[in-house]
Computed example of a mutant assay.
Amino acid sequence: MTRHGESTGNVAFRETDGTDAEEHGISERDADIPLSDTGRAQAVRFGRRLAALPEDERPTLVLVSPYLRTRDTARIALEQVPYSPRVRVDERLRDRDQGVMEGLTPVGVRRRFPEEAERKRRVGKFYYRAPGGESWADLALRLRSLYQELSGGRALVVTHDAIVVMTRYIVEELTEQEIMEVEKEPIGNCSVTRWRRSEGRLRPVDYNDLSHLSDTGALAP
């Protein structure tokens, strides 16, 4: 499993972090945000890691979020490999819908929706759903339906940071408190998270591994 390469949205988030801005200044809808130049370079390096896998570890199926940044990450990465896994786009892997909070910074949320900021504080991050949006728990519901369909083979999932986190919640049967602690660590762009089946269940191998990007100078989340 991997998160998409750095997007122009990720760059905008970093540029507004810690400022007084109320919006991130992203003009595209979330589904249309493209990769940055750094993100494309990260996708190439991720693809080279896939190309170097031994035959018995190569993915037989690639599941991809329908968003532009994930589809381009998968396409660029697979251009580097000497094999041809089946590729399937699945909308259940899309990023978490922020609803009316889309495009707002934390400052913007507090100023424009103070009652929602308070409700999130009371309900907690895991179960809070912004108007028109999704909670973290909602992600678990759609991901369970997808993963229950998989049988056999080796799947590579190209998706978003929230989906990586919630996949770990499902696969490792974590609690709300445990996964919200895990979520505090940012998921790096084009990082690798892996599980391997052993004794009838999936067991963690790597989480948020960025070793294949160590010489790109592009490790920002």
Score class of each variant (00 low, 15 high):
T8D: 12
K125M: 13
G39M: 00
E91D: 15
G5L: 04
R142V: 13
V192H: 01
L93A: 04
A41K: 04
S211H: 09
R71S: 02
E149C: 05
R129K: 15
G47R: 00
R196M: 13
L68G: 00
V182M: 07
R122Y: 10
F46V: 02
F126K: 04
D90F: 08
E116F: 04
G18L: 12
R96C: 10
S84L: 10
R121Y: 07
R112C: 09
G103S: 08
V157T: 12
M166F: 13
S27E: 14
K125Q: 14
V109M: 15
R75V: 01
I26Q: 12
L61A: 09
V44E: 10
P221A: 11
G99M: 10
T8C: 09
Y128H: 08
G5H: 02
E118M: 08
Y207A: 11
T16N: 07
V11H: 02
L150E: 14
S135Q: 13
L63T: 03
L219Q: 07
G39V: 00
F46T: 00
G18H: 09
E149P: 02
G188L: 07
R71A: 04
A21L: 11
I33F: 02
P59W: 06
L63K: 03
Y207H: 14
M180A: 05
R129D: 12
A140V: 14
G108E: 05
R86A: 13
E178N: 02
P85T: 08
E183W: 09
R40N: 00
L156S: 03
M180Y: 06
L202W: 15
S135L: 15
L143W: 14
G9W: 09
S211E: 12
R119P: 03
R3M: 10
L219A: 05
R14V: 10
V158D: 02
G188I: 03
H4I: 01
R129V: 15
D17I: 06
A155D: 03
D209S: 01
S7K: 06
G152V: 13
T216D: 05
M180S: 09
Y128K: 03
L174E: 08
G9N: 08
I170F: 10
A155T: 15
Y207N: 07
R122P: 06
L93E: 01
R3A: 06
D215E: 12
S7H: 07
A31P: 01
L139M: 15
I187R: 07
M166D: 09
G5V: 05
A41E: 08
E199C: 10
A21F: 02
V44L: 03
T8P: 01
A137V: 03
S191W: 05
E118K: 14
A155K: 00
L146R: 11
E28S: 08
K184F: 00
V205P: 06
R201E: 15
R45Y: 02
G188Y: 05
D17Y: 11
V87H: 01
L174A: 04
G99E: 12
L143I: 15
L61H: 12
